[in-house]
Design a protein around this nucleic acid. Structure first.
Lengths: 341, 341
DNA sequence: GTCAGTTATACTCTGACTCAGCATAAGTGC
DNA sequence: GCACTTATGCTGAGTCAGAGTATAACTGAC
């Protein structure tokens, strides 16, 4: 019998499993994940007796659920705020029991076939439409998000709170000439949650008020605000997106998202899909080649409706050579201000 | 009664509480922290019933133990590898119970007086002597660490493992012309642990072999390898150092380590102590002023044995203005290669 | 087979910014 | 008054990212 029963909790592992192709980045989503009937991320209990480390537990769990090995695994964050997680009768014990979930990012080299129809690959930007700036500033920011966020900020009670909220909104959503910083995906989602614009926020407030365990009615997904997820899984996904976008710049993990051989255009398009930006083609090439990240295989890929592209492959040696940076992401346009539609 | 007893564990919070002055960065260390009798970081159980979030729990815990409020708090990582934590009879229950500890970084604005003599401020570099490059490359790297690490790497079994180890050693410890990357503090500590050069590694192996809970004999601290800590606390401290050094560059948290008014030299020296580097004075000034991070108070500080320095203060407005970066750290010397002592 | 369209690749110009050092200002201690 | 110390201002060289132009090599339509 433990001396302090109160320091115990259920530990769960939540996995953000990412893959990407030249068009879109994807995340593995399961249908029956959470008690509120919404889609969510794959997760399961961490069994301290069976697994020596979280990472080993997670890898086993991924292989069990999806049948492949993750190329790369990284711990994201440990989530345990009361009121944001979904109560999980199947995971823990009594309904009141606290669930701590450790979020992990895992990279799959390709969108594998998922025989177990429980899970499916879904595009990121379905959940975060405002994060995709490849075609310039998404219109929803100006038409929907900015007005509502500013309204929320202005209702901030005292003056300093209002000013602080306005500053955060302007900064993270690139209003009034502030630059768009693509890796602040989590900060943006949290702002929307705080402002009550995420359906999950309404659900959590409702649950808090009624003290009920179940969501009374299904959440309505406002177009433009992104599709909600069960529990706090959209927050975990936002964390993963932000982390991955940041990491891309100083570690060569982009190559874990690609097949062994690829053209520079493929490389660029995958980077663009993950970053949600369009990059300057010529400068991207220069950067990649100058950094010694790739080597030509000698082969070319034709049939793409233009000059055939040379095939490249990742130079593993860079890992041991220099600081082995990532993709410095030279932008196609200045992503500041309200230009760009 | 829980359905799955096995998914439970004890949750602990471990705090790296940092302060700094112009000479040294400090960490709050408690004497009786771990069962192996070594100094360690302050920590305590997280009580899910009392605290809505980890951060609230941690702040309460810091205030209780030290009497001040942390200026800044950030989650670092969740540690739960079996075999590296110290078994804690007082925290959990049975000796075999798994302890999961969530590491947090907290910043104190100054080295407060600690009435409760349980805790004391200790200099960082006592635990990580190789991390302080302010006077150029520390001699211990060439005399002690490099030879032993290379010996370990060369004994790596197969050829590819040897090559990989050698690459990591060269890269992280800046051998053969590789640049010193100050924020890789964790990677360096983990290399030393893997190589068995950290006393903690020997302790853990011994414990694994004998399956005993207690460390048979006190660990010997080899000078130059740094003073060991109980449990896996030195790993957590290394994580904090790396994170703080990295964060300094893109968030203005350096100012949480300073009093309200400071001279640019003080600012620089605090940055240098944390980064473990000496910076180029003129360029540092230019960077700080150009970034709009500070504003002159109009007052000057004299009595320092030279021209009086103007006093500055942090411009809080930058937080709402631009991307509000941090200290870009213009170096004093090229920190590559074996030059520099 | 020629031409328009498309994609790949090479090269150049420019401005911004970092590195590094020199020069000057304004104090302190003897 | 002089040596020394610290603060502050400024400049030239080198590097690099941003942006655009030019050319090469294919496909498909006619």
């Amino acid at each position: 019998m433990p001396l302090r029963e109160d320091a115990h909790a259920v530990i769960g592992l939540t996995a953000v499993i990412v893959a990407a192709d030249a068009n879109e980045p994807y995340v593995l989503v399961t249908r029956q994940a959470t008690s509120d009937g919404l889609a969510g991320l794959p997760f399961g209990p961490f069994d301290p007796a069976r697994h020596r480390t979280f990472e080993l537990g997670l890898r086993t769990f991924i292989t069990d659920q999806t049948g492949f090995d993750a190329a790369y695994v990284e711990q994201l964050y440990t989530f345990g705020d009361r009121g944001r997680e979904a109560p999980r009768a199947d995971l823990g014990g009594g309904a009141a029991e606290r669930v701590i979930s450790i979020g992990y990012l895992a990279i799959a080299p390709e969108r594998t076939d998922l025989q177990g129809a429980e899970a499916a690959w879904q595009e990121w930007y379905r959940y975060f439409p405002w994060e995709d700036w490849r075609g310039g500033r998404p219109a929803i920011i100006a038409t929907l998000l900015a007005p509502r966020l500013i309204a929320w900020a202005s209702a901030g009670g005292n003056e300093s709170e209002t000013a602080s909220r306005l500053g955060r909104v302007r900064l993270h959503f690139a209003l009034d000439g502030a630059p768009w910083v693509e890796e602040r995906a989590l900060e943006r989602y949290e702002l929307l949650y705080e402002a009550g614009l995420a359906p999950e926020a309404q659900r959590d407030r409702m649950r808090e008020r009624t003290k009920s365990e179940r969501t009374p009615q299904p959440m309505a997904a406002t177009p433009g605000l992104g599709e909600p997820m069960g529990s706090d899984h959209r927050r975990i996904l936002a964390t993963a997106i932000g982390r991955l976008r940041a990491k891309l710049k100083y570690r060569p993990i982009i190559f874990d998202l690609l097949q062994r051989d690829f053209t520079l255009s493929e490389l660029q398009h995958v980077a663009e899909s993950v970053l949600g930006l369009s990059l300057h083609k010529q400068n991207f090439r220069r950067m990649v080649e100058h950094a010694g990240l790739v080597e030509a295989t000698g082969a070319v890929e034709s049939g793409t409706g233009g000059r055939p592209a040379a095939l490249f492959r990742f130079r593993r040696e860079v890992l041991a050579e220099r600081a082995a940076g990532g993709i410095a992401a030279p932008r196609a346009h200045r992503l500041t201000g309200p230009e760009h539609n």
